[in-house]
């Protein structure tokens, strides 16, 4: 009896803490949404106005008129997609190489790949800028996509997954006269489908949100990605809070929609990096 009461109280406390946490998580988002529908005068009204008297959805089209957001959106989508496709190719190829092939210097190459993981972008951004400038890639999609074309974590994840494929399967295919490219394409890739989709989600998210590199490469706003467009909007129209929040919500919406559809994969993709370590 006494134990039961203690358990009940414990459970109640647990729920209280969890719900308090959920409220803290959700409040800024609701606040941003409510603000996007207010008039400027209502934003800081005293006492606090949670909801606008009239929902001003016209803040959204008005905000979009302040800058080429369609262009920024397209740039983000295009760059993140290009980087993701390139990564799927380079990471799976390299992962296959490190997992299933034997050649001199393989382990050194793999060690080199892992070592690049700890180099901060900010530490190499200056020469990277000079390299891309020398290649004539400033203000171009090449400059935004190619330098991000592979990732050490991606190679590591691919290698871990390909290691689990039985050697015999690959050896049998070789004996049957299957070419190396065909083995990679017809046997290895189909077997690591789930890992590939996790990697795709990962890389896409990182690059959808990448900021420092596009900031350096794209000096003209024609090539700005969405985060830079938003930061730019913030510095010129940031005090127009309803419109600012409208822009923020529109940028957030596609990510949230994709997240709710694919949330299992998202969370697994995130956890993957933790478990496999």
């Amino acid at each position: 009896m006494r134990n039961q009461i203690r358990e009940r109280i414990g459970l109640l406390l647990l729920y209280l803490v969890l719900i308090a946490g959920a409220v803290i998580v959700i409040t800024p988002l609701l606040y941003a949404f409510a603000t996007s529908l207010k008039t400027s005068a209502e934003v800081f009204a005293v006492p606090v106005r949670w909801l606008p008297t009239v929902a001003h959805f016209d803040n959204y089209p008005a905000a979009l008129k302040q800058g080429p957001f369609g262009r920024y959106f397209f740039n983000s989508l295009f760059v993140a997609t290009g980087v993701t496709l390139l990564n799927l190719l380079t990471c799976s190829l390299a992962g296959y190489s490190f997992a299933k092939h034997r050649y001199h210097g393989r382990d050194i190459l793999f060690g080199f790949v892992l070592a690049t993981m700890m180099v901060p972008i900010a530490s190499m951004v200056i020469p990277l800028f000079l390299v891309v400038k020398a290649a004539g890639w400033l203000n171009s999609y090449w400059g935004l996509i190619i330098p991000a074309g592979t990732s050490a974590l991606g190679i590591f994840l691919m290698r871990q997954n390909i290691l689990a494929i039985p050697d015999d399967l690959i050896a049998a295919a070789r004996i049957d006269g299957c070419g190396e490219l065909a083995i990679y394409w017809r046997i290895v890739l189909p077997l690591i489908g789930p890992a590939l989709s996790s990697l795709a989600i990962f890389i896409f998210m990182w690059n959808w949100d990448s900021f420092l590199w596009p900031m350096v490469v794209a000096t003209r706003d024609q090539y700005w990605t969405l985060p830079i467009g938003i930061a730019g909007f913030e510095s010129s129209y940031g005090t127009n809070y309803p419109q600012m929040m409208a822009v923020a919500n529109m940028a957030m919406a596609p990510v949230l929609v994709v997240f709710f559809i694919l949330q299992r994969n998202f969370i697994e993709a995130m956890a993957l990096s933790g478990i496999k370590e």
Partner: peptide, 29 residues
């Protein structure tokens, strides 16, 4: 197959050489 293995690693390795190793060495320089 060993040669193929080496070739498979190359796209990633070349990208790292150009966009990680070369820049970080240049930062020191």
């Amino acid at each position: 197959a060993g040669w193929w293995g080496f070739a498979f690693a190359m796209p990633a390795i070349l990208l790292f050489l150009a966009f990680s190793l070369w820049p970080i060495l240049n930062t020191f320089y």
